[in-house]
Design a protein around this nucleic acid. Structure first.
Length: 654
DNA sequence: TTTCTCTGTCATACA
DNA sequence: GCTGTATGACAGAGA
C-alpha cells in the first residue's frame, strides 16, 4: 500500500483510455492503460537506462474486465498472474483508502492498482522497467530487474492461444514490444514518433522536477478531493457530470487531456505535465472523439494496425462487448466466447471495413432520410400546424438550404439523437461536418462533450423501445434497401412527433435529454451550439411539452389517487357508520335493560315500605328522592312536581 | 357509428 | 421575467 501511495504521491499516474467501437450489432470498448511514471521514478529510470529518456510511460494493456487474468500473463515482475487475486471489493477498498485519483471501476483497474500496491519496493520500478523495455527497444536497452511489461493480453486465455499469435509468440511480442511496433509497418514510425515526442515531454517535465516535488504535497491533499469528486461524478447522470466537469474544464483544457492525439502536446508542456503525469486520470474516450480530437494521430489514422493486433502492447483489444440485445452495461467478456471470438477473429480489414461501412451507412441514412427535402417540408407543415411555427414554403427551402450550406461546422455525432450523449459513440457514427448542429470547437463544447464521454459509466443505455433511439442498432445484411426502408418506416412510425421533429432538424439530443436535463445545462447547451432559431424554438417546445406531459401524467395519476383515496374513505366511513349504528342499538338495548331494572327496583322498594299505620305506600302517590347528604326521603309526587316547576322557572329566568 | 378511455397538448394560474 | 408545476379543457387515437 505504501508503495502505491508513494507512487501517487510522487506524481505517478494511470491513464485509462477507452475507445468505443461500434461494429454492427456489437459494441466494443477498447481499454488500454498508460502507466504514467512519477517524475522521480522517471529520473531513476533514466539513470538506469544511462541515456536520454526513451521511456515516458509504461503501456499496459490489460485483460478484459471481468477476469482476473489469463494464462500465460505475466505479473509485472515476470510471475504468472495470480489468478486467485484478492477480492475485488478488497482492492477497491484499498485503492480508495489511498485516496488515489484513479477510480478502479473494474476488476482490471483494481488489479492494476493492486499490482502496484501489493508489490515490493521495486514493483513500481518494475512497471517502469516495463515502460523502458517497451519504448526503448530501438536502443536495445535491457532493463534488469522487473523489465517486463504489465500486460493483460486480452480477456480470455483461450483467445490468446487461438489468436493470430500464440501464447509463446505473445510473450515474445510482449518482451519485445518494439518489434511489435515495427511490425505495424508505416504505423510504427508514426507511433515511434509519438513515443519520441512523449519522451521529449518527459525530458521537459523532468526539468521541472523540483516544482513537481514541491507541488506533490499539495497534490496528495488534493487527490482525496479529486477522488471524491470523481465518485460523485460517476454516480451522476451525464448532464450532472457535465455540470461537475464544467468547473474542471476551466482549469483543464481539452488539450490537457492526454488522449492519444494530444498526449505529446501535453507532455511538452510543464503545465500539461501537471495534469497528465501528476494526476491519474481515468477517462473513457470514444472513437468518435478520438477522431475528432486527434486527426493527425497515428492511432486514429491507422485503425487497422491498431485494432488488428490484440496482443499489441499499445492497444489491447476490447474489454467490454455489448450488443443492443444485451442488458446495458453487461460485460460479455468471458461470458460469451462466440461473440468474443468473433470480435477477435476479425481481421484488420474486416474491422476497418465494418467500422467505416457502418459509418458510411449511418451517414447515408442520415442524408437520405433525415435531410430529405420532402420530409423537411412535411415536417415544417407539421410544425406550422402543431407548434405554432409560422413557416411558409419559402422558409422551408431556406432552412434546408441554410443547413446544407454550412460546410465549416461540424455535426458532432448528430445521429439524429441518441441517449446519454453517446452520440458518436453509440453508433460509431461520424457524420460529415455539414449538417445542422453547428459546433463551436473553441467555445468549450469539446471539453464538455469529451468529459461527458470521459466520465460516463460504460453503460450504454440502449432504450428497448425504438422511439427512444434513432441510431441504427445493427448493420443491414447485404444493404438490403427494402429491409432498411421498412425498418426506417417502422422506426419513424414509432417515433413521437417531437422525436420526428428533432430527428428531421438534426437536433443532436434525445427528447428525453432535452426534457430532463437541468435548465442550466439546457441553456448552456443552447448557447454552446450554433442552433438556428427554428431549432431553438423546437428544443424549447419539446422541453415544454415534455415537462407538461410529465406534469399531466402526474396530475392524472394524482387525481386518480385522490379518487381512489376518496373511494377508500367513503368505504371506511360507511363501515364506520354501520359500526356506530350497531353500537347505538346495543346502547339503547342496554339502556332499556337498565330502565327495566330500575323500575323493578323501585317497585321492590315501595313494596317493602310502610307508613305510620303499617300500610303499604302507594308508589303512584309518593316518590323516592335522594337528598344532598345521601339520605333517601319519601315525598308526595305533588311536591316533586311543584319542585320541578320551580327549578325550571329559575332556569328560565337565568 | 357511437361511446368510452387514454394520452398529449394548450392555456392559465401560481409559486 | 423565467421556469417549473398543477390543472381544466380540448382533441385525437384506439378499443
Amino acid at each position: 500500500m505504501k508503495h502505491l501511495k508513494r507512487w501517487w504521491s510522487a506524481g505517478g499516474g494511470l491513464l485509462h483510455l477507452t475507445v468505443l467501437l461500434s461494429l454492427g450489432v456489437l459494441r466494443v470498448d477498447l481499454d488500454f492503460y498508460l502507466l504514467l511514471p512519477p517524475p522521480t521514478l522517471l529520473r531513476d529510470q533514466l539513470l538506469l537506462l544511462g541515456g536520454p529518456a526513451s521511456s515516458a510511460y509504461a503501456l499496459s494493456p490489460l485483460p478484459a474486465s471481468g477476469g482476473w487474468g489469463n494464462a500465460g500473463q505475466l505479473h509485472p515482475k515476470g510471475r504468472e498472474l495470480d489468478l486467485a487475486a484478492p477480492p475485488e471489493g478488497q482492492l477497491l477498498r484499498e485503492v480508495r483508502a489511498l485516496g488515489v485519483p484513479f477510480i478502479p471501476r473494474t476488476r482490471v483497474d483494481a488489479w492494476l492498482v493492486h499490482s502496484v500496491a501489493a508489490g515490493d519496493a521495486d514493483e513500481a520500478h518494475g512497471l517502469l522497467g516495463a515502460a523502458a523495455a517497451s519504448s526503448a527497444g530501438e536502443a536495445g536497452a535491457s532493463v534488469d530487474g522487473g523489465g517486463q511489461a504489465v500486460q493483460g493480453g486480452g480477456g480470455d486465455p483461450r483467445e490468446a492461444r487461438s489468436g493470430p499469435l500464440g501464447a509463446g509468440e505473445e510473450e515474445k511480442v510482449l518482451a519485445e514490444p518494439t518489434a511489435q511496433v515495427r511490425d505495424t509497418g508505416g504505423c510504427a514510425s508514426e507511433k515511434n514518433e509519438v513515443l519520441r515526442e512523449k519522451h521529449e515531454g518527459v525530458d521537459h517535465s523532468s526539468q521541472h522536477e523540483e516544482n513537481e516535488e514541491r507541488a506533490s504535497a499539495q497534490k496528495e491533499n488534493s487527490f482525496q478531493q479529486n477522488n471524491e469528486d470523481e465518485n460523485k461524478i460517476a454516480e451522476k447522470p451525464d448532464w450532472e457530470a457535465e455540470k461537475s466537469t464544467e468547473s474542471r474544464n476551466e482549469g483543464i483544457s481539452l488539450g490537457d487531456i492526454p488522449l492519444p492525439g494530444s498526449i505529446s502536446d501535453g507532455m511538452n508542456s510543464s503545465a500539461h505535465h501537471h495534469v497528465t503525469f501528476s494526476q491519474a486520470i481515468s477517462q473513457d474516450v470514444n472513437l468518435h472523439d478520438a477522431i475528432l480530437l486527434s486527426p493527425n494521430n497515428t492511432f486514429i489514422r491507422e485503425p487497422v494496425a491498431k485494432t488488428s493486433q490484440p496482443q499489441e502492447p499499445f492497444l489491447q483489444f476490447h474489454s467490454h462487448t455489448t450488443n443492443p440485445g444485451q442488458t446495458p452495461g453487461t460485460n460479455l467478456t468471458g461470458y460469451l466466447p462466440p461473440v468474443d471470438n468473433h470480435m477477435r477473429n476479425l481481421t484488420s480489414q474486416d474491422l476497418d471495413l465494418n467500422i467505416f461501412d457502418e459509418i458510411d451507412l449511418m451517414s447515408l441514412l442520415a442524408t437520405e432520410n433525415d435531410l430529405d427535402q420532402i420530409d423537411i417540408s412535411q415536417l415544417f407543415d407539421e410544425l406550422d400546424s402543431e407548434s405554432g411555427f409560422s413557416l411558409d414554403s419559402s422558409h422551408n427551402s431556406t432552412s434546408v438550404t441554410k443547413y446544407n450550406s454550412s460546410p465549416s461546422v461540424c455535426d458532432e455525432g448528430a445521429t439524429g439523437y441518441s441517449s446519454n450523449y453517446d452520440l458518436g459513440a453509440v453508433g460509431g457514427y461520424y457524420q460529415e461536418p455539414s449538417k445542422l448542429c453547428h459546433v463551436d470547437h473553441d467555445s468549450g463544447f469539446h471539453g464538455d462533450l469529451t468529459f461527458q464521454h470521459i466520465f460516463h459509466n460504460h453503460t450504454y443505455h440502449l432504450k428497448p423501445s425504438a422511439p427512444e433511439s434513432t441510431s441504427e442498432p445493427f448493420s443491414w445484411p447485404g444493404n438490403s434497401q427494402k429491409i432498411r426502408s421498412r425498418y426506417l418506416e417502422d422506426a419513424d412510425r414509432n417515433l413521437s412527433r417531437d422525436e420526428r421533429h428533432a430527428k428531421a432538424l438534426h437536433v443532436p439530443f434525445s427528447v428525453d435529454e432535452i426534457v430532463h436535463m437541468p435548465v442550466d445545462s439546457f441553456n448552456s447547451m443552447l448557447s454552446r451550439y450554433y442552433l438556428t432559431d427554428l431549432q431553438v424554438s423546437l428544443l424549447r417546445d419539446i422541453r415544454r411539452r415534455g415537462k407538461n406531459k410529465v406534469a399531466a401524467q402526474n396530475c392524472r395519476k394524482r387525481k386518480l389517487d385522490i379518487i381512489l383515496n376518496l373511494e377508500y374513505d367513503v368505504c371506511n366511513l360507511q363501515a364506520k357508520k354501520e359500526t356506530l349504528k350497531r353500537e347505538r342499538a346495543q346502547c339503547n338495548k342496554a339502556i332499556n335493560i337498565m330502565k327495566q331494572k330500575l323500575h323493578d327496583l323501585y317497585r321492590d322498594v315501595f313494596s317493602r315500605l310502610r307508613d305510620d299505620q303499617g300500610r303499604p305506600v302507594n308508589p303512584n302517590l309518593y316518590a323516592l328522592q335522594c337528598s344532598h347528604d345521601g339520605s333517601i326521603l319519601i315525598i308526595p309526587k305533588e311536591l316533586v312536581a311543584s319542585g320541578h316547576k320551580k327549578e325550571t322557572q329559575k332556569g328560565k329566568r337565568k
